[in-house]
Design a protein around this nucleic acid. Structure first.
Length: 642
DNA sequence: ATAGGGTTAG
């Protein structure tokens, strides 16, 4: 209707109208055609304004020259007073034209005319200043505002959040609380996002949570979902679960937040379990939840569950989603053969860096460094930029294969691409040189790094361990404690192995006390090395006690003890423990087999030795050198007997 | 408001 009328007016075209904000009420808009001037003072809608301009200034106004401030000047020239609404729309024109100068002029006029108290205008000014990037302007308007409603606070808080200025958001929130303005859902939404962006302490998050409960928002998914994420990111998985359980209306985002929270914190089984619950509850599985739960399956190598999920991915139409496919590629690339991984990968419609990284890391972790490097080349050919993750995987593959030359080439790529200070690339790089026995270069790199990365220190402990240099290892170990770095489950095995190999049981015992002090006495990795150390040095009772305190013993811990018994001629004990290990459903490794065969030789148990040999053969150790040596010994001993 | 890939080990 309006457009028809407008088109009758010739030059007043649609593009002319596009200069004006779209905010028209058709019923009112018809009025100016009867009496534009009268209408102007109390109602200015988009067409009214334009029609007025056309009626009043047919020669002066056209599509090109009409700008907000010029129009205002024309109005003033004609003696017509602009009202509050006029300024609102003029400010909207600034938004479209992007002119900060004009906005400032209008701001000045608004203050001069005494419109500075109008909250509508102030909010609009905040919008425009934000859009034009003048944050000082924003703050100035806000400081001058007389009555700051929750809505105004929300506007400025979410504005700063959009600019990712978490500090400002949290400061503003404190001010808001001080002024006793009740926060809204939107306020809490921004504040929670600021918390995760800024990495604030969990105590602060808990305070915010208390306020959320106080204001009765804990049942809102919009607030509780990010809260779940925040608790999960900080490792407080129980708090996250509590928030999740308190939600009476869980939406799909709530489920994803909780499932990914579990999956990312080492609670993969719980993640899969919760996914099943979600599925039973009839909630539609989004691509988000698939990528999350699949990632959990990859981490704990639950391939069959992953395959079942893959079927669901097809069923629910997520099979073309990049995130989902990437998670599937990761899952399948952890399997011994890469057929499924390559199938998913090649069928992907749009591959990104992560798609390549998933496959590369799979190849790298299974020792196929050439295949991984080939993909690295392919990746560059597809115009995808290899990132820190790519390089870290590749470096790790080169390190484990002793491919120093290729590793060095990657090193220069790292320097060129500016990744030298990435915390993980540094670790992988250092590991490369240590593994390739270039300890000198490794130490040089170590000296150039910042000192707060525990991994680097651990790798240096491995480095000096390789040189059997316990003195230097111990200095490093001491220094990291002085720097306040907390040893982890990688630290203790590294130095303890050196103690074992140089025969420094006293130093080892000293470290054992620290293991207990820091709560690592239940860690299988740490304990297996302790058992090995004590067993090799004849303290078999101590080694035995340590094994018994483990909740979940593994092959390496058992065989460390068994080989200790065998080495100290306690053959019956060795065989007894070998039997017990098998009875517990733990498959032997080569150390276990060779120790048991040696023990058989020791007590001249030919038949048992043959049996164990057959077992080792079935377990795939037919070409193992240590077993071969044990067999030779066995033969010699049994021949000697006859 | 929710998602995928990474360094050190016996």
């Amino acid at each position: 209707m309006i457009l028809n009328l407008i088109s009758l007016r010739g030059s007043l075209s649609k593009s002319f109208l596009s200069h004006f904000p779209r905010k028209s009420n058709p019923a009112i808009s018809l009025k100016p055609f009867q009496n534009p001037r009268k209408c102007f003072s109390w109602d200015l809608s988009r067409p009214t304004l334009a029609c007025y301009a056309f009626d009043e200034f047919p020669n002066e106004v056209n599509e090109e020259n009409l700008k907000g401030i010029e129009f205002l000047q024309l109005m003033e020239h004609r003696g017509i007073c602009a009202n509050c609404q006029t300024y609102t729309w003029l400010l909207d024109l600034c938004l479209n034209s992007g002119s900060l100068v004009e906005c400032k002029k209008l701001h000045g006029k608004i203050l001069k005319l005494g419109f500075g108290n109008e909250s509508v205008l102030c909010n609009k000014l905040v919008d425009v200043y934000f859009a034009l990037g003048d944050l000082d302007g924003v703050v100035k308007v806000f400081e001058d505002m007389p009555n700051r409603s929750a809505r105004s606070w929300d506007k400025i808080i979410s504005g700063f959040m959009e600019k990712k200025m978490s500090n400002r958001v949290l400061d503003l929130f404190s001010c808001m609380v001080e002024e006793n303005v009740s926060p809204t859902e939107i306020t809490f939404g921004s504040v929670l996002r600021a918390c995760s962006g800024h990495g604030v302490g969990i105590r602060y998050v808990e305070q915010i949570h208390a306020r959320i409960i106080f204001h009765g928002f804990q049942i809102s998914p919009i607030i509780s979902n990010p809260l779940i994420g925040l608790y999960a990111k900080n490792g407080l998985i129980l708090s996250a679960r509590k928030v999740f359980d308190n939600l009476c209306m869980k939406d799909s985002v709530s489920w994803v937040a909780m499932i990914s929270g579990f999956s990312q914190n080492g609670y993969e089984e719980e993640a899969i379990h919760l996914f099943c619950e979600m599925h039973i509850a009839g909630v539609f599985p989004t691509p988000y939840v698939f990528s999350s739960v699949l990632s959990g399956c990859s981490k704990i190598k639950l391939f069959d569950v992953g395959e079942q999920l893959h079927a669901l991915v097809f069923k629910y139409g997520s099979s073309l989603e990049t995130y989902v496919c990437n998670a599937l590629v990761t899952l399948y690339s952890r399997m011994p053969n890469f057929v499924s991984a390559e199938k998913v990968f090649s069928k992907m419609q749009s591959k990104d860096e992560v798609s390549f990284n998933s496959l590369i890391s799979g190849l790298a972790q299974q020792g196929f460094s050439d295949g991984a490097l080939e993909l690295f080349t392919k990746m560059k050919r597809d115009y995808l930029k290899p990132d820190c993750v790519t390089v870290a995987s590749l470096l790790s593959a080169c390190a484990s294969n002793g491919a120093l030359c290729k590793g060095e080439q990657l090193h220069s790529y790292v320097i060129k691409a500016g990744m030298s200070s990435d915390i993980i690339v540094e670790g992988a790089l250092l590991d490369l040189y240590v593994n390739c026995s270039d300890i000198k270069t490794a130490h040089e790199i170590f000296l150039t790094t910042k000192t707060e990365n525990v991994v680097l220190w651990n790798v240096m402990l491995v480095a000096y361990g390789k040189l059997d240099n316990l003195r230097e290892s111990f200095i490093i170990y001491r220094q990291m404690q002085i720097k306040g770095l907390i040893p982890n489950q990688f630290t203790y095995p590294s130095i303890l192995r050196t103690c074992t190999s140089v025969g420094a049981l006293d130093v080892g015992e000293q470290i054992h006390t620290q293991v207990i002090k820091t709560g690592f006495q239940f860690n299988v990795y740490v304990c297996s090395v302790l058992i090995d150390m004590y067993a090799k040095h004849g303290k078999l009772d101590t080694a035995h006690v340590i094994l018994r305190t483990l909740a979940e013993e593994d092959v390496v811990s058992w065989t460390a003890l068994i080989s200790g018994y065998a080495q100290h001629n306690l053959f019956a004990e060795a065989l007894k423990h070998f039997r017990e290990m098998l009875d517990r459903g733990i498959q032997s490794d080569n150390i276990g087999f060779s120790s048991a065969i040696s023990a058989c030789a020791g007590i001249q148990a030919l038949n048992l030795g043959r049996q164990i040999h057959a077992q080792s053969y079935v377990s795939g150790y037919s070409e193992d050198l240590s077993i071969g040596n044990a067999l030779v010994l066995h033969r010699v001993d049994t021949v000697r007997k006859h």
